[in-house]
Design a protein around this nucleic acid. Structure first.
Lengths: 216, 216
DNA sequence: GTTAGCATGTAAGGAGTTACATGATTTT
DNA sequence: AAAATCATGTAACTCCTTACATGCTAAC
């Protein structure tokens, strides 16, 4: 059955912020990346079941300890991360496998960079960048080849795609540079020290001056 | 069984350029959008089987009529689009359902705009744009809400995501403007008249003159 | 003559969605 | 007291990938 990497990672990451029940998790999931699709309950609940079975999370007594009026009966099931869960989360993050450079896999991992050791962060950013550089050269080659032979819309699509990829590569390069200079030795220890390097990577000019694009 | 919209559409679209066998189709599929993932044979061949059963494509005698040395025995199975196939293709394009505004669904449809009636093109572009505008306002709201409370990486991710979406909306708006002024009444009639409106939408300076390097 | 690449398939399974079924709580 | 929304789940289905199985043809 093996639940999906992305969803599992996201759930574990969110539960670092404190115990939560399924419904709430799903909403937070939707908001996380903005563009991230919101994982239906049909995926979420089975995923929670798996994590429970593995002992990475446990059902909690009402974490609404403050709120009155729900004494004996509880309709919410609140999940809390266990020590094993935290370990598993770190292991998944560090895994770096091919899933970590793909769009979604990268997105979730980046979202939890605040809890990720510096070396792993760098590895993921660089892996993602080379993935995109591959895509870029593929697109460039395709544009060269087909220059004349293709109809205008296909061309426009490829041109726009190429621009997007180039933009993303520049973004990653900036982030990597920042990590290299600032983020050298910081490592997460526990959930209270949620503080990475400075907010924005270096200075960000409106126009990208020259940037020879890092040919490989 | 109902094969997937995207793959089916892509196959039908590609076959408009002339008969092709599976292996070749798969390669073209990979190149189409550049970023488009390359659909494994495990999806492609069953899809072809479905289309065949529906009568939208037929097996052709060796369309390598020119090449010698493959007389009686053929190892390639060449597929050709039927009239029903062309009709079905147009119907799928025009469908406009929610799938048409999603990333992949939009991508394929755009790639075949050269064969799409002007009114359908406009509808798809506008649908896509409002989809992205939704995403944009969602992201903006999220950024407002969480300004302080979130760690720097999550913030940076959302900021970058928002910029991407805004860029995409501008692109679509340019395209829509061009369609409105130039592409008024053009409609595809048959596969020979593969010519939409002018190549690039409106004016777009060649800011990056040529790609000098092209690594790989 | 054997490796490499072309070419066609199938079976099993992974990852997720939709649609459904159910009940509790809050709002109107 | 009805309607909305919160909350939890399951079964069936979709779409696609991986891994396998097979044979042809070209190149070295």
């Amino acid at each position: 059955m093996r639940r999906g990497d992305v969803l599992e990672l996201a759930v574990l990451g969110l539960l670092h912020e404190g115990p939560m029940h399924g419904y709430e998790l799903r909403k937070r999931l939707g908001g996380m990346l903005g563009a991230f699709r919101a994982f239906s309950y049909g995926s979420l609940y089975p995923c929670l079941k798996d994590l429970l079975a593995r002992g990475w999370i446990v059902e909690d007594g009402p974490a609404d300890a403050g709120t009155p009026a729900l004494s004996g009966r509880r309709s919410k099931i609140v999940y809390r991360l266990t020590a094993e869960g935290k370990e598993g989360f770190q292991a998944l993050l560090a895994e770096g496998g091919p899933t970590a450079w793909e769009d979604e896999g990268f997105g979730v991992r980046f979202a939890f960079f605040g809890r990720t050791p510096a070396d792993v962060r760098l590895r993921i950013l660089e892996g993602r960048r080379s993935r995109l550089e591959e895509r870029r050269s593929h697109l460039r080659a395709s544009l060269q080849r087909t220059r004349q032979r293709l109809d205008s819309y296909t061309l426009e699509l490829q041109r726009h795609g190429l621009e997007s990829v180039e933009r993303e590569v520049r973004w990653l390069s900036e982030l990597i540079a920042t990590e290299r200079t600032e983020g050298g030795q910081w490592v997460a220890r526990d959930s209270s020290s949620t503080q990475g390097p400075a907010a924005r990577p270096a200075t960000r000019q409106p126009q990208h001056p020259q940037q020879p694009e890092r040919p490989e």
